[in-house]
């Protein structure tokens, strides 16, 4: 039996009066890629954001039920959100490096967590950039602005930035939707590489991408996790009619 990294238990989320997540109870395996698919507005991104409490930032959100990381409820009172987000990193849809040098982008996380030693920082930066398969492209211009990189490079830099705080889980919110096909391939290869070390959860609009990169797939519809399971079985023999319709392009 595989290790369960994250478990949610009857998770409900409300934005004001909108019931955005309904009774979501799922298990996310460690060292695997889990894909969240479903039509726009189905709650998959919202669900992703509950896993590192990014929903806390938008007011007017109410959450019931539990999210357990390594068996501990991350919504329990007294949980240090900064520490949680260090463990559960996130990569966003738009490649969004900070307007500073490539080096400072990657060093940002370690620095806010108090690492000041130059040697240590340099080591972390190199390891993270290597981990995100972008080291060879940027090693000669670490002190140049990150805004000069291409879209795909920016996204891999953002992945390196997230890796620099040594998270255990990486959340990716449609990481390739703003990228061209060639860059998409690179980021997808990277995801497969990342799961050796991390638990990866990726939201994607693209079902082929889910099929290519993920081990497990959760299908969301109207805030419900309709079907969850191994990617292979979900795509080859969906148990739910709605899943079948969605993956065959009947809606979405």
């Amino acid at each position: 039996m595989d290790d369960i990294k994250i478990r949610t238990d009857h998770l409900n989320l409300y934005y004001g009066r909108t019931h955005a997540l309904k009774n979501v109870s799922v298990k996310i395996r460690a060292q695997a890629v889990t894909a969240l698919i479903g039509p726009s507005g189905c709650g998959k991104s919202t669900f992703l954001k509950t896993l590192n409490r990014m929903n806390d930032l938008s007011g007017n959100v109410r959450i019931e039920g539990g999210v357990y990381l390594d068996g501990k409820d991350i919504y329990a009172p007294g949980v240090d959100v900064a520490k949680l987000r260090r463990k559960v990193g996130m990569v966003f849809q738009e490649p969004n490096p900070f307007p500073m040098s490539i080096y400072d982008n990657v060093a940002y996380g370690p620095r806010v967590h108090g690492i000041k030693d130059h040697g240590t920082l340099e080591k972390i930066v190199e390891e993270s950039l290597r981990g995100a398969s972008i080291w060879d492209e940027v090693k000669g211009r670490l002190r140049k602005s990150a805004l000069g990189l291409s879209g795909g490079q920016k996204q891999r830099l953002c992945i390196a930035r997230a890796m620099a705080v040594e998270p255990e889980v990486l959340l990716m919110d449609e990481p390739t939707s703003a990228l061209d096909p060639a860059s998409t391939v690179k980021v997808e290869e990277l995801m497969k590489e990342l799961k050796k070390k991390y638990t990866v959860v990726v939201v994607t609009h693209n079902m082929q991408q889910a099929a290519r990169v993920s081990d497990d797939t959760f299908f969301f519809l109207m805030g419900e996790a309709v079907e969850t399971g191994s990617t292979y079985s979900l795509f080859s023999k969906p148990r739910d009619r709605r899943t079948f319709d969605y993956i065959n392009g009947r809606f979405g």
Binding site: A82, K83, R86, F92, V112, R161
Partner: peptide, 27 residues
């Protein structure tokens, strides 16, 4: 300053004050 820069900073575990002084003001 675009909201997603703040979000990225929070997602790395930075506090609000850190985000303001290290990301928002430089940007």
């Amino acid at each position: 300053v675009p909201a997603h820069l703040r979000a990225s900073s929070y997602a790395l575990g930075a506090s609000r004050v850190q985000t303001i002084f290290r990301v928002v003001l430089p940007a």
